[in-house]
Amino acid sequence: MTRKPWLAPLLSALFFALFVGAWYLATTASSGGAGAAPAMDPEYAALMGAQAQAGGQSAMPGPGEVAAKIWEHVSDPFYDRGTNDKGLGIQIAYSIARVLAGYLLAALVAIPLGFVIGMSPLVYKALDPFIQILKPISPLAWMPLALYTIKDSGISAIFVIFICSLWPMLVNTAFGVASVRREWLNVARTLEVSPLRKAFLVILPAAAPTILTGMRISIGIAWLVIVAAEMLVGGTGIGYFVWNEWNNLSITNIITAILLIGLVGMLLDHLLAWVARAISWRE
């Protein structure tokens, strides 16, 4: 494997070509053929009505059309022609801003609170039942409550991100802090290290890899949730864009947005992975 570093990328390219080829064939095949069935959802065909029946072409866009659309978006990502017609760049920027706001707020709460929980078995026992009940709640279930109490859809979306990023960071921080090696704490004790110095110079670096794992899980969940949250609250964001394009029946735009969501999600994950590598230590 190490002697043929080009093998994996070559295989990736091959898979991609196969996928695009299959996609092309499926969308250009005549609608009469049974082979085009996957692209011809009956409900969708009914919605498309005349066009689907009249044209021999599938309603599903082919790779060429999607590529053209992507190019269109890439060449002009930030146009703004009113509420329902903004560039993909603007929409994704709204989503990223909401995710970062909710995520950073959650980190600000979860990491100090996790520290306290991890350091004190008593606080851990006292808070454990609440965490156990709150953690499995789908973040979207909070949405109506948030809309009712906050009365602002944008802030409600941020709140939903906050609540879904909170738990992995909280639980991981508490676990990381609680499992700091006894011997390092003993070193700190024999050196009469002050509590603050101990927290920042011993416990934090010792627990950092575990905390970062929680932060990485959180950013992944936040990015999953933002699309759904924006579909609900509307207005701006990539989630709203997808929903809006569904109403416009623009499948090319939806596919373009889906790709973009995946791409940004990957970048966020890589960013956190990079930070995790930077602070990780090896024994």
């Binding site: 090696r181 011997e183 390092w184 003993n186 070193v187 024999t190 011993v202 670096p205 010792a206 950092a208 602070i279 230590w281 090896r282 024994e283």
Partner: peptide, 11 residues
């Protein structure tokens, strides 16, 4: 104190 395991901080 010199500990049984070296107890150095690996970071």
């Amino acid at each position: 104190v010199v500990f049984q395991g070296h107890a150095l901080m690996p970071w």
